[in-house]
Design a protein around this nucleic acid. Structure first.
Length: 551
RNA sequence: UGCCCGAUGGUGUAAUUGGCAACACGUCUGAUUUUGAUUCAGAAAAGUCCAGGUUCGAGCCCUGGUCGGGCAACCA
């Protein structure tokens, strides 16, 4: 069944191009710089680039934009590849801008020969001054009229290491009074005596983004080069270079980058959080990085669904993080195994259940799963329930346990609260209940209707495990508008660690498997777990309309 | 004293390309429920930034404004 969703503006462009025979098939690319880990914003770009190619029978390249050796590392290359694969996409080719350094050098020589590029001796300050301002035209560099022969010789010397960093650059010769700042003789090459993660020390001059990206697109035959809005002013230069170089005419299109409430989405800021130890690393489960989300328990399906629902357009946006949460819940509800875990235990004694007796009850693994598979839970005289699930003076519409009130213990029996034991402070220490033997789950003949169903564990068999409860990383909705240092808005309570009591079957929990702790949320086993101590991350809570009502 | 983008319910995205604004999230009801989850049914919520114009008819076209964002790294 073809989806009837309206086309976004990129799909319209592509369909038009295909219809008019401009391309036989399309080729897109995902072009990260390997200087950090991928985040949700990249996920949007990945889903777009790969999604478009899949939809229209084309292909997508993974290309590392590695033209700045001082910030890039192989560690990042590896994590990026892992994340793209995890998200569920496979690239047609793995390329690197650094693969094209020789060709790019040739392109530069070609421009010099055409009188369209020159070597400039100006310092970076001088060049900045020459640029003028958006409202005032720039001025020509003294080197602007350097003869072609001399430019050729100088550029060759640059390549061969005759100069120090910053001594010379190669600039395009366009127009120092151009209304578009990017067209005022932009720098094409700079000198950097730095070790490159792939080309080693072979080069000491490196192309700038503007002289690498479009050229790489062109070399690969990319039909639609999709990037974010801030590159709009670069498009004129992108087209100018393609025209002057007379190479394959890739076309650039721009969409609005993703912003999400209560988080930041820039590599620079995320790097700061990592470096300054506000989080445990790039894969801290609170991070909007793909590695963080993965560790948190988010599924690729959920993230892809999110990227789909977020849409693509050209206006600035701020997406409610609630949409992301909706997407995971929707997926996890279908696939997560149910387990019972009591967070804040209150002891229940079933006074009419014989001491020392135990029975194995069956509980469904997932009510959404038609196979109806079950697991075994031990039931006994002494149990734990959630302290929140009991109160001595119930408010209106409280369906849980209270003196004289009945509730069902999920997959077990209906119990009635008979009496309460307290300590000297008046804190409830134990609740004594009776159970209705004929109300056994699956063969209930009691006919008693109860409004509430509680999760529980057998006190003797409960397994203590750690849970890490995460909350939003920041406590302001729109970090883009927040004044001052974004780190001032970090949520001090974004991580809460508790020891809780799990049903015994959870000892067999597997990493990578999602679980729903009944009524408590979705969880997954963390890599910090050891055989003696299991650690679970809370992916997201369940929707909780009762919590809202209580307020 | 510039150039370039953009403006539709709280949020995001649509509107058969000129025919009286739809979908999703969120919110609020109600039903079902051995998870106050899920599921289901329903409701409230914009008259499309403003002012003119063209037209039988404008969210879509034109003109002029307003507001928001971007552009002056040897970053990408």
């Amino acid at each position: 069944m073809a989806d009837e969703k309206a086309l976004n503006f990129l799909e319209e462009i592509i369909e038009r191009d295909l219809r008019e025979g401009r391309y036989g098939s399309i080729l897109t690319r995902f072009p990260p710089e390997p200087n950090g880990y991928l985040h949700l914003g990249h996920a949007k770009s990945i889903c777009l680039n790969f999604g478009l190619a899949i939809r229209y029978g084309g292909k997508t390249n993974l290309r590392f934009d590695d033209t700045n050796p001082s910030t890039e590392e192989t560690e990042y290359v590896d994590s990026i590849k892992e994340d793209v694969r995890w998200l569920g996409f496979m690239w047609a080719n793995e390329f690197y801008a650094s693969d094209y350094f020789d060709q790019l050098y040739g392109f530069a020589v070609k421009l010099i020969l055409k009188g369209l590029a020159y070597v400039d001796d100006s310092s970076s300050e001088e060049i900045a001054a020459q640029k003028g301002t958006p409202t005032a035209p720039g001025t020509d560099s003294p080197c602007r009229s350097r003869p072609i022969e001399e430019n050729l010789k100088l550029f060759d010397a640059m390549k061969h290491g005759a100069y120090q960093d910053g001594e010379k650059v190669l600039r395009a010769r366009i127009d120092m009074a151009h209304p578009n700042m990017h067209m005022r003789d932009p720098i094409l090459y700079r000198i950097k005596h730095a070790h490159h993660h792939r080309t080693g020390d072979r080069w000491c001059i490196y192309p700038m983004y503007d002289f690498a990206h479009g050229q790489s697109d062109s070399i690969e035959g990319i039909t639609h080069s999709i990037c974010t809005l801030e590159f709009i002013p670069h498009r004129e230069l992108y087209d100018w270079l393609i025209e002057k170089l007379d190479i394959y005419p890739s076309r650039q299109y721009e969409f609005a980058r993703l912003n999400v409430t209560y988080t930041v989405m820039s590599k620079r800021k995320l790097l700061q959080l990592v470096n300054e130890k506000h989080v445990s690393g790039w894969d801290d489960p609170r991070m909007p990085t793909l590695s963080g989300l993965r560790r948190r328990g988010y599924t690729p399906e959920a993230i892809r669904d999110f990227c789909d629902r977020v849409g693509v357009a050209k206006r600035d946006n701020l997406i409610d993080i609630g949409l992301l949460e909706f997407c995971v819940r929707e997926h996890l509800n279908k696939v997560a195994q149910r387990r019972m875990v009591v967070f804040d235990p209150l002891k229940i004694v079933i006074t009419n259940y014989p001491a020392g007796q135990q029975e194995d009850l069956q509980s469904e693994n997932n009510p959404e799963d038609p196979s109806g598979s079950t697991r075994t839970m031990p039931f006994a005289r002494e149990l734990y329930i959630e302290r929140d699930d009991f109160t001595e003076v119930p408010p209106k519409k409280f369906f849980r346990l209270a003196p004289g009130q009945m509730v069902r213990l999920k997959s077990a029996y209906i119990i009635r609260c008979e009496s309460v034991l307290k300590d000297a402070d008046g804190t409830v220490t134990e609740v004594h209940c009776s159970y209705i033997p004929e109300s056994k789950s699956g063969s209930d003949t009691s006919g008693i209707p109860v409004k509430g169903t509680l999760h529980w564990v057998s006190a003797a068999q409960a397994v203590p495990v750690d849970v890490r409860l995460y909350d939003r990383l920041f406590n302001v909705e729109n970090l883009g508008e927040a004044e001052g240092d974004f780190k001032n808005y970090l949520n001090p309570d974004s991580l809460n660690i508790k020891t809780v009591y799990a049903e015994p079957s959870l000892k067999q929990a597997q990493t990578g498997e999602p679980y729903q702790f009944l009524r408590m949320g979705y969880f997954c086993l963390d890599s910090d777990s050891s055989p003696t101590r299991l650690v679970f991350n809370r992916t997201v809570t369940l929707r909780d309309t009762w919590a809202k009502e209580r307020k």
